[in-house]
């Protein structure tokens, strides 16, 4: 996809952090675009700077050089045009029910109460948690908590969804189920997704395109398109072949 029609653009992003007076480059000249409604996975080993990159996209960190553009406009800082899902189950607010967690962004946006309740209920339905609207986070399983977190990040209608290894702490069976579920939700909502993971099979299952990062400093090693039709079969020859192509860049 050419940069001209990308919804989300990263332009020559570099990030240098200070380690006790020593400048350590974490990211260098990261440039790629993500089209509207495209699902892009950023894959790399631990320490390749992929979480730093996501934090820059989210606006938690400012890049040392370069810029992030959404819809053609440069963004600085945090904003309701991006929804974020973290790996940590604890991201939900324990003192709020699932319903009230999902309402949070709408509340911040100033959406009237009745509309807020209605919208949040709709997103809980989307993630299959309607029956658990009144449950507190600690009463939900890990997978359900991550579903609620996804609903919360979608409810205030951001155009971009940023996900930082949201399923990494789940057991393998739940993770598979959540990946299928995420593809369904993405098809339903047509969000632009940037999904960070170190799991190549997960990236091949989810992504339209995979950006491979190599560490020290983090740079884009390759961009790999995954042209397989969905739903994808992880046991198919084509799937395994796509995994191998990505792995080759990581070795």
């Amino acid at each position: 996809m050419s940069a001209a029609i990308s919804h989300l653009e990263l332009r020559q992003i570099s990030y240098v952090y200070d380690a006790g007076g020593r400048a350590v480059p974490a990211l260098q000249d990261i440039t790629f675009g993500v089209g509207a409604s495209e699902f892009v996975c950023v894959v790399g080993r631990s320490g390749c700077g992929k979480t730093t990159l996501l934090n820059i996209l989210a606006g938690f960190l400012g890049p040392t050089r370069g810029e992030v553009r959404i819809g053609g406009k440069a963004v600085t800082g945090k904003g309701l045009d991006r929804g974020i899902v973290f790996q940590d189950f604890a991201q939900l607010f324990p003192w709020r029910t699932a319903q009230r967690n999902v309402e949070f962004g709408l509340e911040m946006k100033g959406v009237p109460r009745a509309e807020r309740v209605e919208t949040a209920r709709g997103f809980l339905r989307l993630v299959g948690l309607e029956a658990f609207a009144a449950a507190y986070p600690h009463e939900l399983s890990g997978g359900m908590q991550q579903r609620a977190a996804i609903a919360r990040a979608l409810a205030y209608n951001p155009s971009v969804l940023l996900m930082d290894e949201p399923f990494a702490a789940l057991d393998a069976l739940t993770r598979d189920e959540m990946q299928r579920f995420l593809v369904d939700v993405w098809r339903e909502t047509r969000k632009t997704v940037v999904y960070v993971t170190h799991n190549v099979a997960e990236a091949v299952y989810l992504a339209d395109r995979i950006v491979v990062l190599t560490p020290h400093p983090g740079t884009v090693r390759a961009e790999v398109k995954v042209p397989l039709p969905r739903p994808r079969d992880p046991l198919s020859v084509e799937f395994v072949e796509a995994q191998r192509r990505v792995l080759d860049f990581l070795r």
């Binding site: 938690f60 309701l80 974020i84 991201q91 911040m108 919360r152």
Partner: peptide, 29 residues
């Protein structure tokens, strides 16, 4: 107060007063 609650809330537009009232206060309870 767990940093991740602050991050999540800030990402959804909570700042200063509201961050304090809606996150820090119940988080410190």
């Amino acid at each position: 107060v767990n940093r991740i609650w602050i991050r999540a809330a800030e990402a959804m537009g909570a700042e200063r007063g509201r961050l304090f009232r809606k996150i820090v206060l119940p988080g410190a309870l």
